[in-house]
Design a protein around this nucleic acid. Structure first.
Length: 428
RNA sequence: GGAGAGGUGGCAGAGUGGUCGAAUGUACCUGAUUCGAAAUCAGGCGUACUGCAAGGUACCGAGGGUUCGAAUCCCUCCCUCUCCGCCA
């Protein structure tokens, strides 16, 4: 959420910043509301002040056993106007909040301006894609060839966009998550967290998935009770740990890592990546989350992205880092680096991690604060990034480490997690 | 799922219609005392909006209602605890 003060005092600058995202926002409604709000709010508060002081007099008179009917008549005279302006003010504030809740974050000054992914800027490349002396297969063919990846049965059990892993591939999937968690906790200073997979609407509002993106979520209805939602990312439960909290300055930075399944309805992704494991309704991800002092978020963003890159490097997977342009960034982000891993079957780099700095945007929605040098509550900055998407990492290993006979070499870093196994061979 | 109790400031905890944004304790900050500290004493100490300021307004789990006036009464929801049942 943006700072309402900023919108009031410097709307042009806000509009200019948001316009970088490519869809200029019409603020005429906001201006109209704001013009009405100011006078209405002072008038309402003035009436409330009169009512409060008169009511206090009634109390005093009655306490002294005196007649209060004259003062009561005075208060009664305020009634209609007070009621009307309170109601109107309530409406106005509701409309303000609705507008505010749907405004995306303002891109950071260092973000390249552009309309879509074609304007993203590659800023780093690591590793050299392997050359194969045979026709490379994609991960679906490799996995099905091994007899360890089964989309047909997954479709029978659940439907499209689910996968069933078996044997070595299932174990590799588990090994990847363990390896990532161990690396981030022992080498990068994160605290491991296990968090709920079902969350309430307030949490999703806090990180920015609600109210605008409800159709992307799986919603669980429970009769009369409030619905719960399956998490689309561990970012939601983990970041919301600090919702409505005022942290001691010494508690920052908070560095948390969490492995969860993620559930996305993929509404509107129609037809894209239907084959294979790239885009699923359910996938595992190891998520890095940091809550930091506002002065530190830019540095933390670089650091966190480096932590995700370390996993790719340890696995020997070629990748590149891209800074997303203003038009390609997510709703809540001020700046985002995507890490893209090389997929030989697609002959291209594909997103495997997205690392974002949200500035105070999420913290303001969540009211996540810390006590600053003056002992005053101040909004934290939040960041997160995939470290990494487990399913896509599995895909990358299958494709990059495939051999002519259909087997797949297991990266050395993972072998301790695979009982020393060096090769995924076909299940007989 | 059944029965009951309860949600108040950083924490504990009083307050059951009026002078309550809220006693008291504790924690914290400042000052006095001290060589220094402890103890003691004095003062300060919630969040947000608004105003040059004085001040004003809102907030006692959330949302509605009753009333001239609600932390306090009523309704709905959320959460916590205790006992029973069920269960990995």
């Amino acid at each position: 959420m943006l700072d309402i003060q900023q919108l009031r005092s410097n709307l042009d600058a806000v509009a200019e910043g948001l316009a970088k995202r490519g869809k200029p926002i019409d603020f005429t409604a906001f201006r109209t509301l704001e013009a009405e709000r100011k006078t209405l709010q002072t008038r309402t508060q003035d009436l409330q002040a009169q009512r409060n002081s008169l009511s206090k007099q009634i109390g005093m008179l009655k306490g002294q056993g005196k007649d209060a009917s004259e003062v009561m008549a005075q208060v009664g005279a305020l009634g209609d106007e007070l009621k009307a302006s309170e109601a109107r003010l309530g409406e106005l504030l509701t409309e303000f909040n609705a507008i505010l809740a749907t405004l995306p974050n303002i891109p950071d000054d260092t973000v390249p301006v552009g309309a879509d992914e074609t304007a993203n800027v590659e800023i780093k490349r690591w590793g050299t894609p392997k050359t194969f002396d045979f026709a490379v297969k994609d991960h679906t063919d490799i996995g099905e060839g091994l007899g360890q990846l089964d989309f047909v049965t997954a479709a029978k059990i659940s439907g499209a966009r689910f996968s069933l892993l078996k044997g070595g591939i299932a174990r590799l999937h588990r090994a990847l998550a363990q390896f990532m968690l161990d690396t981030h906790t022992t080498r990068h200073g994160y605290t491991e967290v296990y968090a709920p997979y079902l969350v309430n609407a307030a949490s999703l509002f806090g990180t920015g998935q609600l109210p605008k993106f409800e159709e992307d979520l799986f919603k669980v209805l429970r009769g009369d009770q409030d619905p719960l939602y399956l998490i689309p990312t561990a970012e939601v439960p983990v970041t919301n740990i600090v919702r409505d909290e005022i942290l001691a300055a010494e508690a920052l930075p908070l560095k948390l890592v969490c492995h969860t399944p993620c559930f996305r309805s993929e509404a509107g992704s129609g037809g894209r990546d239907v084959r294979g494991m790239i885009r699923q309704h359910q996938f595992d991800k190891v998520e890095l989350v940091q809550v930091v002092h506002p002065d530190q978020s830019a540095a933390a963003h670089e650091e966190l992205t480096g932590h995700a890159e370390a996993i790719l490097e340890a696995l020997g997977l070629p990748y590149r880092r891209v800074v997303l342009c203003s038009g390609d960034m997510g709703f809540s982000a001020a700046k985002t680096y995507d890490l893209e891993v090389w997929l030989p079957a697609q002959d291209t780099y594909r997103e495997i991690s997205s690392c974002s700095n949200f500035g105070a945007f999420q913290a303001r929605r969540m009211q996540a604060r810390f006590r600053n040098e003056k002992n005053k509550p101040e909004l934290c900055h939040t960041l997160n990034g995939s470290g990494l998407a487990v399913g896509r990492t599995l895909v990358a290993i299958l494709e990059n480490n495939q051999r002519a006979d259909g087997s797949v070499e297991i990266p050395e870093a993972l072998r301790p997690y695979m009982g020393g196994l060096e090769l995924l061979a076909p299940t007989r």
